[in-house]
Amino acid sequence: MKTKEFIVTAIIIVVLLLCKFVLPKPIQFSPTISWIVTILLGLVFAFIFYLTIKGKPVERRIVFLLVGISLVVPFFMQFKLPLKISPEVQQVYDKLASLPPGSKVLASFDYDPPSAPELQPMAEAFVKYAFEHDIKIIMMGLWPQGPQQANQAVEAAFEENPALRDQVKYGVDYVNLGFQSGNEFVVLRMGESFKSMFPSDLNYTPYDSIPLLKNVSNFSNIDWSINFSAGKPGTVEWIQVAVDRYNLPMSAGNTAVQAPMVYPYLNAGQLLGLMGGMSGAAEFEKLTNLPGKATTFLLSQTFAHVVVILFIIIGNVAFLRSRKETK
């Protein structure tokens, strides 16, 4: 048993090192190979289906391995996927597009690196779009790591479009107020005065000496706000305090887990538009015409969903059959 584990470990290390140092990079499958790989995966599922129905369900590890493969393989494929825009995302975009140049937008980055795969693409597309359309962004975070994510989004925008680097000025076109602890109480106090909560920005520049903030004392001076949220504190807290008590117009980008909980607020008009998860991000990237990571990952995402659905179907068909037999 021990030797077997040792061999497995050794093989994994060798394969990884080979990938790192020997393999030509980057790897891309031609369409034919992509199709062949997809069909092979399908055959594996057919086999699992057969086994499960025969009453020999496969081990957990096989399931894990299959999920892993179907997430990784699409990285190297090049299928083009048509994407339909959902009304919630359209609403976010319409709101953003309707802002005249010079409008001030408050963007709260309430997430940390683990949730970045879903939210960072939205943030990047938003920042890029805002910079290109002369919309001013006031950034902040209710999560300690939020402001760093904001800076990364700005950096990504500059890398994508180097012309922006000269065009967009810190302090004039955007500002990063940083993080402040206190969850919804931060929002509550911002309702009275931003300055009381953020005496200085992330770089320790005093609030009053930042040109963009000259006329910003509280939410009443903000034209629109967007909130990228991965949990608590996040969109719900912003709605409860900033929207319900201070009438801040707000849209949100949420991790997919959070999104269903936010729909009632959307229907009630407390929230103006919602981007949910990676597919929401991909739709937003399409609308803003700034394809990024979410668009790239859409294929992997699709594969993953299909795999989970297949597992549910296989499990249930076997379950229904066995129930029929016992009857």
């Binding site: 399931v63 894990f64 683990p114 795999v307 597992f311 379950f319 229904l320």
Partner: peptide
């Protein structure tokens, strides 16, 4: 750790989510 959930979700779909 967070991402491991992807695998647990898949295995739960195969074993636990029954009609």
């Amino acid at each position: 750790m967070f991402a491991l959930l992807a695998f647990f979700v898949a295995s739960a779909s195969y074993r636990a989510f029954r009609a």
